[in-house]
Design a protein around this nucleic acid. Sequence first.
RNA 1: GAGCUCGUAGCUCAGUUGGUUAGAGCGCCAGGUUGUGGCCCUGGAGGCCGUGGGUUCAAAUCCCAUCGGGCUCCCCA
Length: 418
Amino acid sequence: MAKPKYTSHVGMVDILPDESPKWRALETIIHEEAAKFNFEEIRTPIMEQTELIVRGIGQLTDIVSKEIFAFEKGDSHYVLRPELTAPVVRAFVEHHLEQRGGSQKLYYIGPMFRAEKPQKGRQRQFHQFGAEVIGSDDPVADVEIIALMIRIYQRVGINNFELKLNSVGDPESRETYKEALRSYLKPNLDKMSELSQKRFEKNPMRILDSKEPEDQQFIESAPVIQDYLNEDSTEHFEKVQQYLDQLGINYTIDPHLVRGMDYYTRTAFELISPDLGSQDALAGGGRYDLLVEEIGGQPTPAVGFAAGMERLLIACEELDISLAEEKTVDVYFVTLGDAARTWALTHLPKAREAGLSATMDYKGRSMKAQMKDADRENALYTVIIGDNELNEGKFTLRNMKESEENSLTFEEILEKLG
RNA sequence: GAGCUCGUAGCUCAGUUGGUUAGAGCGCCAGGUUGUGGCCCUGGAGGCCGUGGGUUCAAAUCCCAUCGGGCUCCCCA
């Protein structure tokens, strides 16, 4: 096929009319379930200051080091947001949302941008929904976040997934653990992957996440963080597990689960789907008790999740779940002649005021073509308007499914369909 | 950043060891029915065979490059 003159950028895809209904259906589910959990929606700009994202997510993370779309204009440094936790926290601090009292329970839906090579379940512009509880360090908040996340998948009809859970500790526990990890890894460091060697000093925990084959033997018998958690973190982690048990939410503890953003503390979790192939993470999240302060606010504990909408929709495809029903239009005005077209144009608003969806042909085509169009548009009814009908004030109402016709006044038609 | 693979009509794809005007199904438009959709029949529009270069009397077909898609590694949603 000859390439069109203009195309969308690599990894940035159009959501076309045949696809948009399922997106809208998914968004409706997210809004409804978030509302049931009493979360409020927040919408932040697509672009943020580079410094916020770098500080918030971490200089050494993959996201910041190689996946950021950034550019300058005048003195301002812009980035297209790669995730929304840091921006939401920025908004929380900037607008003093803590003054609203209680814990802020916020959720969002929107596009994110990461400059990666696209593949299945990975686009450069992709969409996430997510939720954050800012201002509580209670394990109840962690569990409510997880419950909301899972609830949305269940509403959609996706039930086969695995929840992986870990605690990455508070700063104190983490330092002790990192030291233990370093002394364990050090003797063999030269046998490990280049990537792991690079991470050794600054972020040795990410080594646990490595998939490099040469690293595996060392990772397997590495010390686990659970043994280094202090009393507070241990208790928090146990409470989270206890509450999940009480809610009947299944999970597996994965001591090697370390997430890609530096800001996580204590609870970390991921939702994995066997229906996705290589990019199998449906959603992920955790607690980030230090981020608010890092960004310039008062020390404020928080926890949240983010979920990939494309991946959710891929899972739906695999599971034959259809989120949206076939589109229909209530009534299609079929016109014969100019007088009929004028009549139709001026009566469409009346049908719409009566609560019906209503349309007509825009191209002055033959009756047969109009009927065909009405069929293609899944019109429930057609109203046939010609000279006879205009003279008598009665129109032919055709039920397209039953192929039955009645001769009725316009008022009778509205009453019947309304 | 690395690897594999594929680019022929709007879509899904045929195209025989290179050989005349490049095909099918679906979709689109129109007619068969001068006021009736779906089924059927007939016809039509629509392709510089991704792009550029090379080999050859001759290239959709062979070679090189390039761009784009898909998949994979890394990492993440």
